[in-house]
Design a protein around this nucleic acid. Structure first.
Lengths: 198, 198
DNA sequence: ACCTGAACACCGTTCAAGT
DNA sequence: ACCTGAACACCGTTCAAGT
């Protein structure tokens, strides 16, 4: 209906923004270079002026998704929740980051945020714990996000399955909190003075 | 050289075995129905007599990978290591299982094995902890396996990066043990009597 | 600086038809 | 019971050429 989209001539940022919006609509499996190009009213080959490869484009999308995590002095649990919610903010966001961040996770701002929160809590082995928490959050978020997508896609349950495991997603929230808390590993209420509302 | 492979006429098991062997050689990204068919000296369409879709074939491969986990009365840590090693036994095994098991993880023999080991250790909330441990193991194994692949693929480091983080993979083993131990959450050495070598 | 057009070497899947 | 042959609707990527 609307003639709207057809200025043909984009920059790197515009391509990334269109790709991110399309990801949210169609999911990672259906996010093709040709679909992104069509969305921009451009030939597929045009995308290769802005990005060297599809992998490079996906890496940029992963960076944009994780750029939305809150910084500053939050608890370890709140920091982890912030990361999880950033991954949830886009369809298949967790899977995309998981499959893209193998080499850069350690130097990611997400992991350093967790690390800093651990140090503030006086946790031992903050480096290892930060890595473990990131592995857990990424695994958890990927599984939950896949299940969300599969559930919304139908997958009709038998009558005796409905409600059998009494609300699945609420249980998954408990799993997340329990996991992060256990991995934080602060034993007593001692060691570091928490700077609440300084 | 060898004429060997050309009996043309296979069953479901033979197709799955060939696909699993090919996965180990080329990785998940290059595991196509057409490549599997070529390996079996068969047209791609022939595979659809044995499996309804590529997704169904991948699900079967995931089942075969996780079928290799040891059962019986091991500690939680040893059970988790067994699962991790089963995922490591095939190239991209962790990623394949992670992307396939969203809906069946809870009923998988892997998670029930962890659950049983937790109960034997007298851990509280064994259901939630078993889920958390599986999420952690799958996230961890996927990340580590990707890094292994990327590292072997070149990725030349600058001189000042070499050895900078003093052996990465050894550190990842420590992250795994710390993570599983923390998630097991047994506080004292009390509660359940460990049945060591009964 | 940014895009087109055409090509190359691939994909998963369906379906009538063969044996 | 298991496979072929042909087709359909797609992929990512390269590269000369245009503006």
């Amino acid at each position: 209906m609307t003639p709207a989209h057809n200025s043909t001539r984009h920059d790197r940022d515009g391509v990334a923004r269109a790709a991110l919006a399309l990801l949210d609509e169609v999911g990672l499996a259906d996010l093709s270079m040709r679909r992104i190009a069509a969305r921009l009213d451009v030939q597929p080959s045009a995308l290769y002026w802005h990005f060297a490869s599809k992998q490079a484009l996906l890496a940029e999308l992963a960076d944009r998704i994780t750029a939305g995590i809150p910084r500053g002095d939050a608890s370890v649990l709140d920091t982890a929740r912030g990361i999880r919610d950033a991954l949830f903010a886009y369809r298949d966001g967790a899977e995309l980051v998981l499959s893209t961040y193998a080499l850069r996770l350690g130097s990611s701002s997400a992991q350093t945020a967790v690390h800093d929160a651990l140090v503030a809590d006086g946790a031992d082995s903050p480096h290892e714990r930060a890595a473990a928490i990131m592995h857990f959050v990424l695994g958890h978020a990927t599984l939950v996000q896949q299940r969300m997508h599969a559930d919304s896609y139908g997958a009709v349950m038998a009558d005796d399955e409905v409600g059998a495991e009494h609300d699945v997603t609420a249980g998954l929230d408990r799993v997340f909190d329990l996991g992060v808390t256990a991995l934080t590993g602060v034993v007593s209420g001692a060691t570091a003075p928490r700077r609440d509302r300084a």
